[in-house]
Nucleic acid binder design. Structure first.
Length: 1091
RNA sequence: GGGCGAUUAACUCAGUUGGUUAGAGUGCCAUCCUUACAAGAUGGAAGUCACAGGUUCGAGUCCUGUAUCGCCCACCA
């Protein structure tokens, strides 16, 4: 068997074998179990716009790590997978491709066809995303995968919208949107870019009017870069404390262009005394700030005047200018103002202008009807949830972003002018100029609702009151009056599951449903409870039957396998898994998503969606830019998995997930010819094909050039591509390989292993030491994971496995492992009565525990090794408690299982059958009894001594093959420890420990060192130069003197001695004693050398 | 403009409530294919802890200011 284990870990083999193994055994499945506590993580749903990048890999690694860890601790650990339809982003991607490949716009093919195309896109990318997640090892309950537009989520959206509408939380309002006059659509803020363009800055004046509305000689001047908007001015505005204009506030001015009279108002937010003339014109329909000013001063000025048609030409509100393009109007207006005597001056100026990312044309601010959610009360509750610590942020500081944003309580605009998304379930129902129903309307309505209509009386009541608000479970409505057309209409919100009503409306009135869709965040806000089946309280949510799940679960639903479930009526899944445990996300969506999930969770469920929010760092490239596909620095996790293995990737990522900093990840291209790494430059990122030739990257090693992965164009499939990787991941890969080889060594040496109890007396010094360290590191890792400090946890584990287990323990047990069975009883020269069997048992215990500790970080390799270990050692000394080892968050005082057993002796390691798979093995506990700090200190001394000897070898450049004699002068207790491990001196440092004890003297021609409590001498006749050694020792003495001086200075400083804590002072004194000893021995050596 | 964060070795980052001589990985130099591992072993060189003040017996750590960088929000007639 040992020969079967390859010398290098081959990640692809383990990954291909163990993921299907886990999934087919149903290990990822999480079903309610009243005997166990739940641990729930809802994935921050990735967009179906494209493949995942490193940010997702980081996010996913952390969640999987937590899920696997909690599962091992005995929780029913649910990690809920799924994807987001991501309205704007996805529609834009599909539209762009359609335009590029077929030169079609969405208007060419229509709403239904476009949506069908996007669904196809979604299917493709969802598959790809899930594939990536599985490659990473994601132990989601894949039977529960959800999509924000699927039936379950759609129902939750409909129910929530209806509920909010009925509760009066949803209202129709005006809002200025970024209007793309070319595409004739509203564009989101993040699809708009700003560019500086050459423009003009005009100053005009309006004449102040007298009481009769006649222009006077007095003028008020203002500046603008968009004179055409003067046609839509509804006021001019000054600062309330501006003395130049105090007397004018409340008076009127006349717009010479159309003779309209508008008021002079005062508004401290809009007007700035120090800018321009201090006076500003106000055009609420075409400027966001002016619009905000209007909302503050509605009663003083008229309603906003919209001047634009959707195509960017001026409408009838512009009078004689109607039908002209906005730039033509600009010229005409300037001319008209000159003629009217209102022109003062013009200057050139660069103006930041917004452009649509998609059409590259200038954006016009455009007033439009939108739907809003009132945030007032909802926000207050969500704020309280964090202030009361019902939801806690890790790291804590991120609570600020959340609170600051919510406390503004800005209403949430939830409508989007798109086709891809949840269509707003509101039908606008025309009533006419009178707020009552015509006979014709009434007939239509009766046909829809039936003659015994439950709605009519209420509708009429509402109409009479000219306000909306009446409702029942099926229908809710508001009544609105359009000032422009002078018509009344009823806004009907049809509840979920009311297909008949919808059909009826359509039959009588045509398609009156609001054409807009909901903001993507509206559905993702519901994710934590929608995925669990809310609002259906009667049934568990449906599950997807994957192939693996089907073959594994013999087709029977979870309820049949778990009788406890079958007995429960209602939605046990929702009951059991809500609220969730922790949300893992990056900081940029704290407001957009986290805040809204808390808000809707409280609104729909009456409880927060999760207890903890862990905010992890962002991944940046080597230039400090965020990673994204469009920047050309979005590394595909699959490329990294291929090169470094999923575990290597995961371990590295976890090591980067600290609390303070974002992660910089310098990117390289991997040469497809020779595998060399070529650092990526900004030029690489930006390069675009020139004259049909695609940029190439040249490998400095093999001198060949190749095309590379780029954001700007697709690579040719016909030739190899240099993929983006980062050598940082060698860290994790190398660690995995080290672990692999350590376990390989163990497995080879476990030949002939027999299970059996280990008695206290059979434990060698190094056994006790490694068990003590193991106990310490287990405790440390558990504590760190509890605090989401993954970087520190990986560091602790790596250091333990590599620098303690491999470098010291494995080296030290080699002599015992080499013992052949027959000579076991009497091994000459072995310090410990070293029974090979006992050594194997301790080794198996340590390896077993290491694999379990590492499993959440590196699941594939640990599973692989676990299975191999199970073959050779199916029963092994268990250090785990047979009981569930869940630590409750609330009952800190509850005794841990091992505490309840009192204080067992060291020799209580008795064999138990190992778990069938590492993924379901229990998280290590019960090691506490092995902790022995005094022993660890003694061992440290030993390590220091070996280190000092190795140092001499290095300094004198002595061949590793040469065996050195070592003499050590030390106290008897140190000598006793040394005697115990004398044999290992050979293994560890290629030395022979000739003598140790208080009476050891320095042999002539020795190199020496002093550690204070021990001095070491290595005779190096012929190998050292007396003068060189003297110089080295003198340098050493000088260094020690420096330290001593520093310490003495402190101790003679009375304020230090008086004010510093006693233990600090004592520490300095102790160190000083050691330093003086060191100095004395060093000086002694110097003297012997004739110095 | 407001908020949050960062600045420590050539690179990427740790550094607990202030307390001996500031650490790791990578890279670099030297020696070594020692029967688990060259994706390895042993040793070494490498730091004015961004800058300037302050608090303190004592500051990488706390405070103030400056500079640079990043992110979020607001705004730019």
């Amino acid at each position: 068997m040992p020969t079967e284990i390859p010398k290098q870990y081959v990640p692809s083999a383990a990954e291909a074998q163990w993921f299907p193994f886990w999934e087919s055994h149903g290990y990822f499945n999480a079903d309610p179990d009243p005997q166990k506590p739940p641990h729930v993580i809802m994935i921050p749903l990735p967009n179906v716009t494209g493949a995942l990048h490193m940010g997702h890999a980081l996010n996913g690694t952390i969640q999987d790590l937590l899920t696997r860890w909690r599962r091992m601790q005995g929780y029913v650990a649910l990690w809920m997978p799924g994807t987001d339809h991501a309205g704007i982003a996805t529609q834009a991607v599909v539209e762009r491709r359609m335009k590029e490949q077929e030169n079609l716009t969405r208007h060419d093919i229509g709403r239904e066809a476009l949506v069908a195309r996007i669904w196809k896109w979604k299917d493709e990318y969802e598959k790809r995303i899930i594939g990536q997640q599985k490659k990473l090892g994601a132990s989601c309950d894949w039977r529960r995968v959800r999509f924000t537009l699927d039936e379950v989520c759609s129902k939750a959206v409909r129910r929530t919208f209806f509920k909010m509408f009925r509760d009066g939380l949803i209202y129709r309002g005006k809002r200025l949107v970024n209007w793309d006059t070319f595409l004739q659509t509203a564009v989101a803020d993040d699809e708009v870019y700003t560019e500086d363009v050459a423009g003009k800055f005009w100053t005009f004046s309006y004449p102040v009017a007298d009481a009769n509305g006649q222009p006077t000689d007095r003028k008020i001047s203002f500046s603008t870069t968009r004179p055409e908007t003067m046609l839509g001015d509804t006021a001019v505005c000054v600062h309330p404390t501006d003395e130049r204009y105090l007397d004018l506030i409340g008076k009127q001015v006349q717009i010479p262009l159309n003779g309209r009279l508008i008021p002079i108002i005062a508004d401290a937010l809009l007007a700035d005394k120090d800018l321009g003339t201090g006076c500003v014109k106000v055009t609420p329909a075409h400027d966001p700030n002016d619009y905000a000013c209007w909302t503050r001063n509605k009663e003083k000025m008229g309603d906003p005047i919209n001047l634009l048609n959707p195509d960017g030409t001026f409408n009838e509100n512009a009078g004689p200018y109607a039908g002209l393009d906005r730039l033509a109007v600009r010229e005409a207006v300037v001319t008209a103002m000159e003629q009217a005597g209102g022109f003062e001056k013009v200057e050139d100026r660069t103006i930041p202008l917004k452009f649509s990312d998609r059409s590259k044309t200038a954006i016009e601010p455009y007033l439009s009807d939108q739907w809003f959610v009132k945030m007032d009360e909802l926000a207050t509750k969500a704020v309280d949830a964090v202030k009361n610590r019902d939801v806690e942020f890790f790291p804590e500081r991120y609570a600020n972003s959340y609170l600051d944003w919510l406390e503004e309580k800005r209403d949430w605009c939830i409508s989007r002018q798109l086709w891809w998304g949840h269509r707003i379930p509101v039908w606008t129902f025309p009533i006419g100029p009178n707020p009552s129903l015509s006979d014709e309307l009434e007939e239509k309505i009766n046909r829809i609702f039936g003659s015994d209509s439950f709605v009519m009386p209420e509708l009429q009541k509402a109409l009479a009151a000219r306000m909306g608000g009446a409702s029942d479970d099926k229908l809710a409505f508001q009544v609105s009056f359009n000032e422009v057309t002078g018509d009344w209409s009823a806004l009907m919100c049809i509840g979920p599951d009311q297909e008949q009503l919808e059909q009826g409306f359509k039959a009588e009135f045509g398609d009156l449903q609001d054409p807009d869709v909901l903001d993507t965040w509206f559905s993702s806000a519901l994710w934590p409870h929608a995925t669990l089946g809310w609002p259906d309280l009667e049934h568990n949510p449906p599950m997807v039957e994957s192939e693996q799940a089907r073959s594994a679960s013999d087709g029977s639903p979870a309820e049949e396998k778990n009788p406890a479930l079958a007995l429960r009526a209602g939605n046990a899944v929702l009951d059991y898994f809500y609220p969730g445990s922790v949300l893992v996300t990056s900081r940029d969506i704290i407001t957009l998503w986290v805040a809204r999930m808390v808000l809707t969770g409280l609104y729909n469920m009456g409880d927060v969606p999760f207890k903890h929010v862990h905010v992890h760092p962002k991944i940046l490239d080597g230039f400090g830019q965020g990673m994204s596909k469009s920047k050309g620095n979005g590394v595909d996790p699959l490329d990294l998995i291929e090169k470094y293995g999923a575990d290597g990737l995961r371990f590295t990522i976890a090591s980067l997930a600290g609390e303070t900093q974002d992660v910089r990840l310098p990117i390289s291209y991997a040469c497809p010819h020779c595998d060399a790494l070529i650092p990526q430059t900004l030029e690489h990122q930006k390069a675009k094909p020139k004259e049909g030739k695609k940029p190439r990257v040249k490998c400095p090693k093999c001198k060949k050039d190749s095309q590379y992965t780029s954001a700007n164009y697709d690579a040719d499939v016909s030739e190899p591509v240099a993929s983006m990787v980062s050598e940082r991941f060698e860290y994790g890969r190398n660690f995995c390989n080290k672990l692999w080889n350590a376990c390989r060594f163990a497995l080879i040496n476990l030949e002939g292993y027999t299970p059996g109890a280990i008695a206290d007396a059979d434990l060698a010094l190094e056994d006790r030491w490694i068990l003590s360290r193991l106990a310490t590191v287990t405790d440390e890792v558990t504590r760190l994971l509890d605090k989401y400090q993954f970087d520190q946890a990986t560091r602790a584990l790596r250091e333990f496995v590599w620098n303690e287990f491999c470098d010291w323990y494995l080296e030290m047990i080699k002599p015992r492992l080499r013992v052949v069975e027959s000579s076991e009883e009497n091994i000459p020269g072995t310090a410990v009565p070293g029974l090979r069997a006992n050594c194997q048992r301790v080794l198996v215990t340590v390896v077993d525990t290491i694999l379990r500790l590492l499993h959440p970080f590196t699941p594939f390799i640990t599973e692989d090794l676990w299975q191999r270990l199970n073959e050779i050692a199916p029963e092994r000394p268990g250090v785990e408690s047979p009981e569930s080892n869940i630590q409750s968050d609330t009952t800190d005082d509850a005794p841990m299982p091992w505490e309840a057993q009192g204080s067992p002796s060291l020799g209580s390691l008795t064999p138990q059958p190992a778990a069938a798979a590492c993924i379901i093995a229990s998280w290590p506990t019960g090691l506490e009894r092995f902790r022995d700090p005094a022993l660890e200190t003694r061992f440290q001394r030993l390590q220091d001594l070996i280190g000092a000897v190795r140092n001499l070898r290095g300094v004198y450049n002595i061949s590793p093959a040469a065996i050195l004699d070592v003499y050590i002068r030390c106290q008897p207790d140190v000598a006793a420890d040394l005697d115990v491990v004398a044999e290992q001196f050979g293994t560890l440092a290629k030395n022979r420990l000739v003598a140790c004890g208080p009476d050891v003297a320095r042999p002539p021609a020795s190199a020496s060192f002093s550690l204070g409590e021990a001095d070491g001498y290595v005779p190096l006749e012929g190998l050292i130069d007396r003068t060189a050694e003297l110089a080295r020792q003198q340098k050493e003495a000088e260094k020690i003197r420096g330290f001593i001086a520093g310490h003495e200075k402190k101790l003679t400083n009375t304020s230090f001695v008086e004010r510093a804590p006693a233990e600090v002072v004592q520490e300095i004194r102790d160190t000083l004693v050691t330093l003086n000893k060191q100095l004395a021995s060093t000086e002694d050596v110097i003297q012997q050398l004739g110095g």
